[in-house]
């Protein structure tokens, strides 16, 4: 369990995948002997929020504490936005590049298989992009406005909000699953049915990157399913009753 009084450097040394997470907070390397609390305060990040995020990522069984419910949703959504950016602009291109490399093999049989995987991954990437676009353009603005209206407690604002949206959070909650399953299938197909004659190391890298992306996206949907959506439901219930 990561706490506020340990050194930030030790956090990263313990699990280097957290680099991707601190990057989302805008934290740069070179923190010397500073503790987690000190680093967070110099970047103006609420340390409690930071700890919830890194611990949730670090330990799959970690369940966000009650105080996750006290942070403004805008803070969480800001984090989710940055995670999206990382998937679309860093991870996906990285994996695409690696797959492109192995399509250049001279072994026809492997090439045929790799091209299928490539098509599958591209399909996945397109779907992920669409899903993210929908969240960013439709779902997140809805949540942010809902939070505003809810906090204002002004009846006329609430009425205006109600007439503007015919959308509820549960309409969107189910859609996640298929995306995670596709990523799992791609990994599974590579491990089981591609027997490369060359470029072994690149295949290992592809699998490593896929697993990394999968882990990150699972964490991302946990955040949405365990924190974001329950809180939105509570606000919706208050407003529509």
């Amino acid at each position: 369990m990561i706490r506020s009084n340990i050194k930030m450097a030790d956090v990263i040394i313990q699990n280097h995948h957290l680099l991707a997470i601190i990057n989302r907070f805008g934290i740069k390397l070179g923190f010397g002997e500073q503790t987690v609390a000190e680093v967070c305060s110099s970047y103006n990040i609420p340390v409690e929020f930071f700890l919830e995020i890194v611990n949730a990522f670090n330990d799959p069984d970690f369940f966000p504490k009650k105080n996750m419910y006290s942070f403004p949703l805008s803070l969480i959504i800001d984090y989710l936005f940055k995670a999206h950016d990382y998937y679309i602009n860093v991870k996906v291109p990285e994996i695409k590049g690696l797959i492109e490399k192995v399509t250049k093999t001279k072994d026809i049989k492997t090439q045929k298989a790799v091209l299928l995987i490539q098509a599958f991954f591209n399909e996945y990437a397109d779907q992920l992009k669409k899903h993210i676009k929908r969240e960013e353009e439709k779902v997140y603005p809805y949540i942010l406005e809902l939070e505003n209206v809810f906090d204002s407690k002004e009846q006329n604002k609430i009425n205006e909000f109600k007439s503007k949206y015919n959308f509820r959070i549960d309409d969107y909650a189910i859609e996640h699953e298929d995306i995670e399953e596709k990523l799992y299938d791609i990994k599974n197909l590579i491990i089981k049915y591609i027997s490369p004659k060359d470029n072994y190391i690149i295949y290992f890298k592809i699998l490593g990157q896929l697993a990394h992306l999968e882990e990150d996206i699972n964490d991302h949907s946990e955040m949405e399913n365990k924190v974001l959506i329950p809180r939105v439901r509570i606000m919706e219930k208050a407003i529509y009753n």
Binding site: L116, I117, F120, Y124, E181, Y184, D185, N188, L189, K192
Partner: peptide
């Protein structure tokens, strides 16, 4: 097979 999605099954069917 441990394959859950239709796209995954399609790729499996093509590979085999």
């Amino acid at each position: 097979l441990g394959i859950k999605t239709i796209s995954g099954l399609t790729v499996y069917a093509l590979l085999n």
